[in-house]
Structures are given as structure tokens and as C-alpha cells.
């Protein structure tokens, strides 16, 4: 019995000199995997035009019914995306989203991408309905919006 206690304590003693496994989150953050599925982003082309064409395929694919898309026609004066249509309203309800990545697979233009941000906590339900302004990546400032 004494021998076994010593055997057990020797493991404890050896472990004392190993660096701790725990991470002091949120000061230190572990990098997430390359394939990690976090908060969505709506991507742009290199020329600044939105990739999203408002086709609603993501909304149709979504198993949790978290996505709402309302499309509108592009005009020559106001052009958002290369095709005929763009997403006038694009909302994702982060309370409903299950981060399965099916919207990503359904998207024909690779506009919606699940990125690496996982810190989505908020104080109200309303603020967790992410609008298009929040989801769209910033416009490259040096490129003009007109195509």
C-alpha cells in the first residue's frame, strides 16, 4: 500500500515540473483549426464588389432556418455585385445558427464563409441577429465601388 502511494505521488511530483496544460483565457487564446466553423462573413471580390448575388440558396439550405435574404436589382448607378441582383437584406440569426457550414457548401459564389471568430456572447437577443453591415467584410478603401 505504501509503495503504491509513493508510486502515485511520484507521478504528481513529476507533473509539478511540467508546464501547465490550462490556458488563461481570455488573456491567452488557443488558435483554432484551419477548418474551424465560427462566425460568418460575407466576402467581396478583389475589386470590392460583393460576392453575394442574393440567390437565397443558403437560406434554403439552412437546417436551422437562421438565414434571411431579400434580393434587389443592381442598377448601373448603384452597383453592389457583378450580376443582376444583390442581397438588399442579409440577416443571420446567431441564436438559431448551428454552425454546420451547410450555407457555405450551398453558396455558388463562395460569398458566405464561416470564419474563425467564436466569441459571440451578447446581452440581448436583438443584437444577435447579425445584419448585412455586420457580416460584410470591409470594403477595400482604395478601390471605387463602381464597376
Amino acid at each position: 500500500m505504501i509503495g503504491e502511494i509513493l508510486k502515485g505521488m511520484s507521478i504528481t511530483f513529476k507533473t509539478m515540473f511540467q508546464p501547465p496544460t490550462t490556458v488563461s483565457y481570455p488573456e491567452v487564446k488557443k488558435p483554432v483549426a484551419e477548418r474551424f466553423r465560427g462566425r460568418h462573413e460575407l466576402k467581396r471580390y478583389d475589386n470590392g464588389l460583393e460576392r453575394c448575388i442574393g440567390c437565397s440558396l443558403c437560406a434554403a439550405a439552412c437546417p436551422a432556418d437562421a438565414i434571411f435574404v431579400e434580393a434587389a436589382e443592381n442598377t448601373d448607378e448603384e452597383r453592389y455585385s457583378p450580376g443582376e441582383r444583390y442581397a438588399k437584406v442579409y440577416e443571420i440569426n446567431m441564436l438559431r445558427c448551428i454552425f454546420c457550414g451547410y450555407c457555405e457548401d450551398a453558396c455558388p459564389t463562395e460569398a458566405v464563409v464561416l470564419e474563425k471568430n467564436y466569441e459571440l456572447a451578447s446581452y440581448s437577443r436583438e443584437s444577435l441577429i447579425y445584419t448585412k453591415d455586420m457580416l460584410l467584410v470591409p470594403h477595400p478603401a482604395d478601390i471605387q465601388k463602381t464597376a
Binding site: 496544460t21 483554432v32 483549426a33 484551419e34 477548418r35 474551424f36 466553423r37 448551428i98 454552425f99 454546420c100 457550414g101 451547410y102 464561416l114
Partner: peptide
């Protein structure tokens, strides 16, 4: 955690792999 990291790297999530 080793196997959880493997699963995250392989599928993109720790628990619901989809």
C-alpha cells in the same frame, strides 16, 4: 484534448462535427 483537437482539425468542430 488530443483527440478533440484532431476532430476539430479534421472536421472543423469539437463536438458536432457535421
Amino acid at each position: 484534448e488530443t483527440v478533440m483537437d484532431i476532430l476539430e482539425g479534421l472536421t472543423g468542430n469539437r463536438v458536432h462535427y457535421s
